[in-house]
Design a protein around this nucleic acid. Structure first.
Lengths: 195, 195
DNA sequence: GCTAGACTATGACGGGCGTTATAGCCAGGG
DNA sequence: CCCTGGCTATAACGCCCGTCATAGTCTAGC
């Protein structure tokens, strides 16, 4: 019953899976590689995630979602502009720190075609994570004077723009897109809360 | 020497590859499936694209890039706002027409991790396509009164936001993100050219 | 100390992958 | 009429995939 390394090992697998998915995409990441990357035996992945790859992907998405949301919640206490800066810096750190190899695992999962029957849980999780990030930003914008509809639209724009920009940075092997997007979004947020 | 079906067949393979990549991503799309989707024999793909999957992916990216650029160039004659509308409608059509299964193949290629040695040509092509779309938008913005730096930043924001939004629409199985982003970007373009 | 149950080790299953090789078809030009 | 060369058909190569089954190991609680 819950040996010493149970939680660490499980968590290591999820975190590693998120990292690998953010680099190669879901379908290009094999369970065997995820296990090896986490220094866990293959059998353990099916022990911890009996529903297989989909479950692992779902948890990786949620893990990333919660990790980003934590940072967002904390920085948004200082206002929407600070939250945006934290959001931008977080992704800039990932892109630069991986030498333009890694991006957002949530985006990677979001663009995988669902099977003909039904929607896979990992895709649902991706939608929920986007929703959560938007909701955090929108709430903060509203608290700082933005109109309700304007706040929702702006929150969507911020999340979408940053996700798209990170992908563009990877393709171009440059942070210039992130610089451009950052300036534009900062001006927008500042205008929307000025009142 | 150029039999009757030579060009049609080759082009069909490229167009089909772009469609499949936009749905499943590059690594999840097999050459066998691309051939079948284009009703071409497997051998033909290696006849037309002797460098294999990477070449096919590269051409699919460039094909999509040129297709979008053509539409963009034409609509931008009526100004940046019209160009933006066309850009948004184009992607909305793809997302809705595929029942949220398809997205942008350029984005799909952009987020695949390059091998340790060197940058694959498909990724370079993706960067060039993004650059091209940005350049078209930026030039039009400058022609309509936007400052040079502002035009470049805004063009990046538009491309990144639309790419990100399309992915969000797929995850949420809704066009609401596209509606939000469209309104925000339209207001931005209109403000940047008003003068 | 023993036993139950959490974890690991190992190997197999059928199947799809990218790529290559080889032989065959069949229209056009000489 | 033949033959060249673009295109196709077919099969094979070695490799990796997701998943499952089974037997083993080790520890925590009694």
């Amino acid at each position: 019953m819950v040996t010493r390394s149970g939680k660490p090992s499980r968590e290591r697998i999820v975190a590693g899976a998120a990292d690998m998915i953010s680099r190669r995409g879901l379908s290009a990441t094999s369970i065997r590689e995820m296990a090896k990357h986490a220094e866990a035996p293959l059998g353990s992945t099916y022990h911890y995630f009996p529903e297989g790859k989909q479950q692992l992907a779902t948890e990786a998405v949620r893990f990333t979602g919660e990790w980003v949301a934590r940072s967002l919640r904390k920085e948004l206490e200082a206002g929407p502009a600070a939250g945006l800066s934290a959001f931008l810096d977080l992704w800039r750190g990932i892109v630069v720190g991986s030498d333009f190899h890694a991006g957002c695992p949530v985006l990677a999962v979001a663009i995988e075609e669902p099977p003909a029957d039904g929607v896979p849980p990992a895709l649902v999780a991706a939608a929920e994570v986007f929703e959560q990030w938007e909701a955090l930003l929108a709430a903060s914008l509203r608290e700082h004077g933005a109109g309700s509809e304007q706040a929702a639209q702006l929150a969507t724009l911020v999340v979408a723009a940053v996700e798209g920009t990170v992908a563009m940075c990877r393709a171009k092997r440059s942070t210039q897109p992130l610089d451009h997007t950052a300036e534009q979004l900062q001006a927008l947020i500042s205008a929307a809360t000025r009142r």
